[in-house]
């Protein structure tokens, strides 16, 4: 464990807690893409298949349970909670996320480190996580203005993967044989997808104006 990875995990934890807090307190999911939340639940479900088979550390197991629990409860809130679901804008959240799932699955079947069920599922979860934010970014473009909780959520989500890139660089130089091209490339693609959002986020933060995304 290194400081970059720990900071990355804490940032990732903060992003899901910010979202849960928003939905739980103001009972609204305005501006939140259910599609992205469903994709994230799928990412965790396919990545943490080893939850009960490989014990790595208490921290690892605890964090996996938190990420699984939070992502599925966010999906539950938006889908089934009688008050929250009313604020879900399904006419705007129309990204066909199946068009993301299938290519990622095919790619995972083609490019992976070992052709086993667990390894393909894990690789699938990496590719899917890289693009899972797209429905949310599309929704933000459509609804133009975004409330700061959603802005913070997306920012933290992007920051966590950027910290993970520092973690991979650190581990590459400190651990022999630590080479995982698939992880690194999908993590880089993921961070680059946030890049333009980061740009506008910092612009609005610097000029102290409400975050407006160009249409």
């Amino acid at each position: 464990m290194n400081i970059f990875r720990f900071a990355g995990d804490m940032t990732h934890l903060a992003s899901v807690l910010v979202l849960l807090l928003k939905i739980h307190t103001i009972k609204s999911c305005a501006g939140i893409s259910l599609k992205t939340q469903e994709l994230y639940a799928l990412v965790f479900a396919t990545r943490y298949l080893d939850l009960f088979t490989d014990y790595i550390s208490l921290y690892n197991t605890l964090m996996k349970l938190i990420f699984l629990g939070s992502s599925f409860s966010i999906v539950w809130y938006i889908r089934y909670h009688k008050i929250v679901r009313r604020s879900y804008d399904k006419d705007q959240d129309t990204f066909r996320h199946y068009f993301l799932v299938l290519p990622c699955l095919l790619l995972a079947l083609l490019i992976n480190e070992k052709f086993t069920f667990r390894e393909v599922m894990w690789t699938f979860s990496l590719y899917l996580e890289a693009v899972a934010i797209l429905p949310q970014l599309v929704l933000l473009q459509r609804t133009r203005n975004i409330d700061n909780l959603t802005g913070q959520y997306v920012f933290l989500l992007g920051a966590y993967r950027a910290l993970y890139i520092l973690n991979w660089i650190y581990r590459y130089f400190t651990e022999p044989h630590y080479v995982h091209w698939i992880t690194w490339i999908s993590g880089l693609v993921q961070t680059l997808l946030y890049a333009d959002f980061f740009y506008y986020y910092f612009q609005s933060w610097k000029n102290n104006v409400k975050l407006e995304l160009p249409a």
Partner: peptide, 10 residues
């Protein structure tokens, strides 16, 4: 023998 299997990251 690797101390941790490769999947030690979240």
């Amino acid at each position: 023998y690797q101390k941790h299997p490769k999947k030690d990251e979240l």
